[in-house]
């Protein structure tokens, strides 16, 4: 699925300038806990989150996240947008909730890029 297609499906608004939207995305990962993103996301996942802090972008940088979608119309501050723009990570805001966003994209064929939980 193209990132542009994904954005349309969730009525998303692109918040960053410059980052390329004409790219393929392999799958997604949904979490509000950044440690979960670090632990269970696979590289190149689109991150769906309700958390809207600087740490989301930093986490995305460490975990090689392809793009960040803020659900429920969360709006990041300017310094968050600036950091993401500099790091070429597209920020997208969707008016829908987490369940709705993930549900729409999953039924449109977007795969999960979350590792299963393991105790080890």
């Amino acid at each position: 699925m193209k990132l542009l297609e994904l954005i349309k499906l969730i009525d998303g608004a692109v918040l960053t300038k410059g980052a390329s939207l004409d790219r393929d995305v392999r799958g997604g990962c949904g979490a509000d806990l950044m440690s979960d993103v670090l632990a269970y996301s696979q590289p190149d996942a689109v991150l769906f989150t309700g958390l809207c802090t600087m740490q989301v972008v930093r986490t995305a940088m460490m975990a090689d996240v392809a793009a960040i979608v803020f659900v429920r119309d969360k709006q990041p501050t300017d310094d968050i947008i600036q950091l993401a723009s500099r790091e070429k990570i597209p920020l997208i805001s969707s008016p829908h909730g987490m369940f709705e966003v993930c549900g729409r994209l999953h039924s449109a064929g977007l795969q999960s890029l979350e590792h299963a939980y393991d105790e080890g």
């Binding site: 740490q55 460490m62 310094d79």
Partner: peptide, 30 residues
């Protein structure tokens, strides 16, 4: 907190520049 992750991103970038594979850089970064 605002600087949280700053050092880590410098470390990850340094490793990539030194020729580390994306997998190694990601593990170190996390």
């Amino acid at each position: 907190f605002a600087q949280g992750g700053n050092a880590s991103s410098h470390i990850k970038r340094a490793l990539l520049r030194l020729g580390a594979s994306p997998q190694i850089a990601r593990r170190c970064g996390i």
